[in-house]
Amino acid sequence: MTIFDAHCDVLSKLLEHPQLDFGHEQDLLDVTLERMQKSGIGFQNFAVYLPEKYAGEFRYVLESIDLFHEKVLASGPIHFIRSKEDLEYAEKNGLTGALLSLEGVDALQGNLAYVRILHHLGVRSIGITWNYANWAADGVMESRRAGLTEKGRQLIQECNRLGMILDVSHLSEKAFWELLSLSAKPLIASHSNAGKICPRRRNLSDEQIGSIIRADGVIGVTFVPPFVHAEEPVTMDRLLAHIDHICSLGGRRHIGLGSDFDGIREKIVGLEHAGKYHDLVNLLQKHYSEEDVEGFICGNWYRFYLKHLPAAT
């Protein structure tokens, strides 16, 4: 079965350690081409996330995109997904597809021209914040828990105009609801779990999950152990409670995967890197129908992106 993973942080590791080899399995990277091929990862979304020492400087966003081309795309038969046609071409020809996203708009410095530049460069989704506040909004860990700024509202409008997909993972709850009311496009949560199952601020409330479902968005169940279960060690079967709960809210066709590999230090037992997806698929097949499993691991994300990516120009 093909895997579609909506979020990994390989590019931030490559930015800090450009000598790393993405093509071959190694301990320093969770996601490599070799591991993707081993697990049958057909589509991987690569997030541009700037570590703190690079935050706020747009040139490092551009350097991250350069690394995507020079390290990721150049490592083997990987097809850059920028349009519906790219997505279909990769699927029909059995190619590994790679998408680009931005996690946190800090480095855009409130300049909407930078948003347009990123769209020209193939970035197709944007997470407005990481955990804390920036010029556009408050993140989920910001103590004041405010919403969008005026500049943030302008960002939403421009993303809608461009067709840029908006990602609510890491966003404060107030900003979440403001974004939902402002955006004319469906939202995604690329890497978030159910707060009812594991009460963490980074996880989504039932009301948030329901609103994403009603808006025809997708939620990427994430592998970050503290967002899966409160007590360690965290095993793969703990993910099932989150999937069951989202399904109970009507989300069977709105569940995907968003590992957050290479953005996490702790790992789920048996799911330590991208080469171990087979065990997760086997576990899912014991509890859900083949149709549901195909939707969770690939189909739901694929349908969403096929609908919302731009047509080729």
Rank of each mutant, 00 (worst) to 15 (best):
E88T: 14
A6T: 06
A194E: 02
M164V: 09
A137G: 05
H229R: 11
A230Y: 11
D86H: 10
H79R: 15
P186V: 01
E290P: 11
K84T: 09
R82I: 06
E25R: 14
C8N: 15
K71Y: 12
H7R: 03
E173T: 01
K53Q: 15
N300I: 06
R265N: 14
G40C: 09
H79M: 12
I246L: 15
D260Y: 09
L87E: 04
D30E: 11
L28R: 14
I264L: 14
L121W: 01
P226E: 06
L239C: 05
E178N: 14
A274G: 14
G139F: 00
L271I: 04
E52C: 08
S192V: 00
S64Y: 04
H242W: 11
A215T: 05
D292L: 08
L102E: 02
H69G: 13
G42P: 00
G295H: 01
Q154A: 15
I81M: 11
H245K: 05
V218Y: 07
H170T: 00
E207V: 04
D106P: 02
H308C: 09
L171W: 02
R303E: 15
Y277R: 13
K84R: 15
L50N: 05
A6R: 02
I243G: 03
D106K: 05
K84P: 10
F58E: 05
S183N: 07
D292T: 11
W135C: 08
V48L: 08
N300C: 08
H242V: 03
P186D: 09
E142S: 10
K174V: 04
F176C: 01
F68H: 02
N111T: 08
D292A: 15
C198Q: 05
L187D: 05
E150N: 11
K185Q: 15
G220M: 07
R116Q: 14
G23N: 08
F58G: 04
P18Q: 09
G299C: 09
G56T: 06
L148R: 02
H242Y: 13
R252F: 11
H69L: 07
D279M: 14
I264C: 12
K84Y: 11
L102D: 06
A312H: 15
G94R: 04
V224M: 07
I219A: 08
Q37R: 15
R59Y: 11
